[in-house]
Design a protein around this nucleic acid. Structure first.
Lengths: 208, 208
DNA sequence: AATATAACCTACATACATGTATGTAGGTGA
DNA sequence: TCACCTACATACATGTATGTAGGTTATATT
């Protein structure tokens, strides 16, 4: 049925299938419980193919993490960059992330972050680095908003940024796909962390 | 050296040591990666003692989960019951939980919840049940607050309760032990979810 | 004090997952 | 078409963790 002529094409295709299966698997089972046999099987291959394309389990997980980060930056990061006002940027990120989490692969980062917290594992380090960059970015936004007076005084910007991210992640994943509550509650939680007053009415207000 | 002890005393002592070590281990490594050899060793025993007191790994984890729930209800649940006003009760729970999370064992429930989400494992079921009861309790509080008009209109009470709990858990654990931000940011996030305006000034306001 | 029972340890059997080595089918270039 | 390479499968070796069975030491009972 599937006739694929070019080798490069073939390789990219199976690599992608394995990555997707691995992402789903990591979301559902986490790293430790994830069986590579299952991953390969779900992608329609065997472990042989997997080990041909990835050095080992760790390498596969790292590839998944990098892949998720890329898609996140492409989809959510773009929205943030469009906003000039720092508060608008933060709200755009929260809404965008909630929408992004409607894909099931979004769980990956949280699952792995929780699993490797307090351990010293390369995969955990990779996630820590990603989160570190995000915290840095959000800290700047929070500091800028504070300087402008668009958010009230409170804890240091870094701590607010950390809380902002953790809240955004938690709510967005908890309500993944349950529109419109996913966006609405993520927004609520994030506004609270930033010290912003609630938006007057949830449904009647036009979403600016 | 070996003080002569009553058998019941001895049993309870080692059981407690094993439970504590298991709680720490589950917090740090999660269920799958947790080695019973490590748990027993950290408690000062061998796996033999562990298998004498617990049927198997699953039984041990369930005991830890029940133990954590008990201590939580004793410490945080008590604070909630003292409050007459539903909003005050919810805020008391959030603050109390943030304080509770200063013990490292608080991570256990979150770690296991994330690890077993989307699986069909007895330990995951136990946590789901605990969370279900909590959601039910909080839903009532949210509904009562809505009826009183102390929180504004918004998503259905169940969804608000879910968001409330997930946010409380995430922030409290993220800032575990980092007083006073743990309490302050948990409070902020939770107020946001409930649709409450931020408290005017974070430090200058006397904690009512 | 002798014996029974509970607490605990050591040794072993089993299962399972990773990683590697080898084999085979399908594509590539002279 | 022939030599070669790449994609993938199968089979095996290894490590590690769980669970169990049979001992050894501490406590209880008579």
């Amino acid at each position: 049925m599937t006739v694929r002529r070019k080798q490069a094409d073939r390789r990219a295709h199976t690599r992608n299938a394995l990555l997707e299966a691995a992402a789903r698997g990591l979301s559902t089972y986490g790293y430790a419980t994830l069986s590579l046999e299952r991953v390969a099987g779900e992608a329609g291959y065997t472990r042989g193919a997997l080990y041909h394309l990835f050095a080992n389990k760790e390498d596969l997980a790292l590839a998944v993490v990098r892949w998720v980060e890329e898609t996140w930056r492409a989809e959510v990061g773009r929205l943030v960059a469009e906003q000039a006002d720092p508060v608008e940027a933060l709200m755009a990120m929260a809404r965008g992330h909630a929408v992004y989490c409607r894909r099931d692969i979004a769980r990956v980062l949280m699952t792995l972050r929780v699993e490797f917290a307090g351990q010293d594992h390369p995969v955990g380090q990779a996630i820590t680095e990603i989160l570190g960059r995000l915290v840095a970015d959000c800290t700047e936004l929070v500091a800028a908003a504070g300087a402008r007076g668009t958010i009230p005084a409170g804890p240091p910007p870094v701590e607010i940024a950390r809380a902002y991210l953790v809240v955004m992640e938690a709510v967005a994943i908890q309500f993944a796909g349950q529109a419109p509550y996913d966006v609405e509650l993520t927004e609520r939680a994030v506004r609270g962390v930033l010290g912003l007053p609630p938006v007057p009415s949830p449904g009647t207000e036009a979403r600016s």
